[in-house]
Amino acid sequence: MRLEWLEDILAVAETGSLREAAERRHLTQSAFSRRVQHIEDYVGIALFDRSRKPVQLHPATAEQREEIARLARKLHQLTDDLRRSDRTAGNRLALASQHALTASWAPRFIERVQSENKDVFFKLRSANLEECFALLLSRQADLAVAYRVAGEEHRIAATYIETLSIGRDRLVPVFARSRADHLNDRIEQRELPCIAYPPEVFFGDVLNRILLPRMRNTMRIVPMVETALTQASLELAASGIGVAWVPQSLARDRTAAGELVDLSAVLPICDLEVTAVRIAGPATHAEALVWEQLKG
């Protein structure tokens, strides 16, 4: 069943007139009538009751009217998607981004690229660090953007991997300003309520390997909630549930607004690098273009 046939059937159903339906379909009435007859020959039944004015759908056709309309919409969408895909195929870039960078860095960078190169189409995949690298190695992503601890290498480092340092950030402790007195009371009791990350994710490794050991001799660490998502960790800190270590870039607006307090002066921090990673070798037009912009 062709899309144009579905639209012919709907035109007759909506106008109740072969003449008006022909005008809507930009055909002469005779040409339109021949096409309707061809559709009926193909289906093997009469679709319309022409003996009545206005023309009405036969019961079997009327019963399927909503399905005919749905199929027409789906075929239109499919056609549009295929055309769009053809236009963007040569300029498509699959970008795997660590969750926190998806929220803070990616929107600004994509806007900058597309302001200069409107045809570049991004397929953005947000994932944790290991998933970003898995997408890259399986060729499901052209580039990966991820944090690493300043001075350290990614575990993915190899001769066939190119890594570019594209920015600096810092993992900082934040807490709700409105609950600061409550936190001070807990700290006076040598307790620190905190938001934990699973040990297998990047920030969990940084927290457990680098940050928490610096405090364990002076206070008891009390995990209140565990989450793998930095955005969730930020919200939990804003609710006063516990101190959260989050990228400074993610918390900047809310600390500037006074909603959160940055506790870097009294609790440990960790400097981070923002890196872009790709597999060395031939690159698509979009990948080469974006890599050059990352260098700038």
Rank of each mutant, 00 (worst) to 15 (best):
L3Y: 03
E4C: 06
G16E: 06
S17V: 10
R19F: 07
A22E: 12
R24K: 15
R24Q: 13
L27C: 13
T28R: 13
T28L: 08
Q29D: 06
S30A: 15
A31F: 14
F32E: 01
F32W: 06
V36F: 05
Q37N: 14
Q37I: 10
Q37Y: 14
H38S: 13
D41V: 08
V43E: 08
V43K: 04
F48A: 01
D49M: 03
S51I: 04
R52F: 03
K53D: 02
L57W: 06
L57D: 09
A60N: 12
T61N: 05
T61W: 05
R65E: 14
R65T: 14
E66C: 04
A69E: 06
R70D: 11
L71M: 03
L75E: 05
L75C: 02
T79E: 15
D81L: 14
R83W: 11
R83M: 14
A89T: 15
L95I: 08
L95S: 07
Q98P: 08
Q98R: 07
T102V: 14
A103G: 02
W105Y: 14
P107F: 11
P107N: 06
P107W: 03
R112L: 00
R112Q: 06
V113T: 06
Q114R: 14
N117S: 06
F121G: 03
F121T: 05
L124S: 11
A127K: 05
N128L: 07
F133T: 01
S138D: 07
Q140H: 15
L143Q: 06
A144E: 00
A144D: 01
R148A: 02
A150S: 12
E152V: 00
H154S: 05
H154D: 00
I156Q: 04
I161Y: 10
I161V: 15
I161P: 09
E162Q: 15
E162G: 13
T163R: 01
R168F: 07
D169Y: 00
R170W: 03
V172S: 01
V174T: 04
F175Y: 15
S178Y: 01
S178G: 11
D181Q: 13
H182W: 13
L183S: 10
L183D: 02
E191H: 14
L192Y: 07
P193Q: 12
C194K: 05
C194L: 15
I195W: 00
Y197W: 09
Y197L: 07
P198W: 03
E200N: 14
E200F: 15
D205T: 10
L207H: 12
L207R: 02
R209Y: 00
I210Y: 00
M215Y: 05
M215R: 10
M215G: 09
T218I: 13
M219T: 07
M219N: 10
T227A: 08
T227H: 01
A232W: 02
A232Y: 00
L234I: 09
E235H: 11
A238K: 09
A238S: 13
G240M: 04
G242Y: 01
V246N: 04
V246S: 04
L250D: 05
A251Q: 00
R254N: 03
G258Q: 02
G258N: 09
L260H: 04
L260T: 06
A265W: 04
A265Q: 12
A265H: 11
I269Y: 07
E273G: 08
V274S: 00
V277A: 09
V277H: 05
R278N: 05
A286E: 07
A286P: 11
L289F: 09
V290E: 08
W291T: 08
L294S: 10
L294W: 03
G296N: 10
G296H: 09
